[in-house]
Amino acid sequence: MSDPIITADNLDLYYGDFQALHGIHLDFEPHQISALIGPSGCGKSTFLRCLNRMNDMIDGVTITGMVKFHDQNIYSPQTNLVDLRKEIGMVFQQPNPFPFSVYDNITYGLRIAGVRDKQKLDEIVERSLKQAAVWDEVKDNLYDNALSFSGGQQQRICIARVLAVSPSVILMDEPTSALDPISSAKIENTLLELKKEYTIIIVTHNLQQASRISDKTAFFMEGRVVEYDDTSKMFVNPDNKQTEDYVSGRFG
């Protein structure tokens, strides 16, 4: 077992007076897909957004505890948010490409980081779109508005946009819940390819999806981690009664 790349340690989160996360402890290992599952409102998306500090933008959020990325606490005042988010990218539930061309979408992260070399940009565009398994569908229309593609293609363009800045971790917040089954399957295959190079943490409502693609699964309930273990164990022989009830569809 290798060293964890991200560790959450005793993480509490409050929306105003309401405590949404209670003392979360979780370790994520590199080059694995970790799934966060649980009923709606259990805090799994909230927790995911803690990992690249996207909750900072919401008014009234207080966070205590630590999230360590390569042994650095990302909530320490020295953390450079810009650098952090280049290392830990995020794909959202709704496909959200910018209303620009595909090319401009993919190069956005690089350009704001100061990359100007056209040849390098071209290379990265091709590489990331290929990694996201959408190159064949968009290569002839790189300069078309990204919004003119289908939802599934848009989501893979968004994945490519994150890959272009070469993060080490990719957070995904229900990336396929707005898509049809065929597009979802394509994205799942993409993720299985990507885990060779990246660490993926995915929030999903789709239990089959979690069991198909993830190596480890964390089950959240009411702001607490009920159980966290290898996916094969979680879905077949979980230790906890609540986990068993949830994965077998008795509630949730």
């Binding site: 996207m54 810009v82 280049k86 990218g89 959202f92 910018f98 956005y108 992260g109 704001i112 968004c158």
Partner: peptide
């Protein structure tokens, strides 16, 4: 301009000004 454009940009490591 939808809020999720801003989120996507910030999540890619852009500053608020960018």
């Amino acid at each position: 301009v939808p809020k999720y454009y801003r989120q996507a940009s910030l999540a890619l490591g852009a500053t608020k000004w960018q």
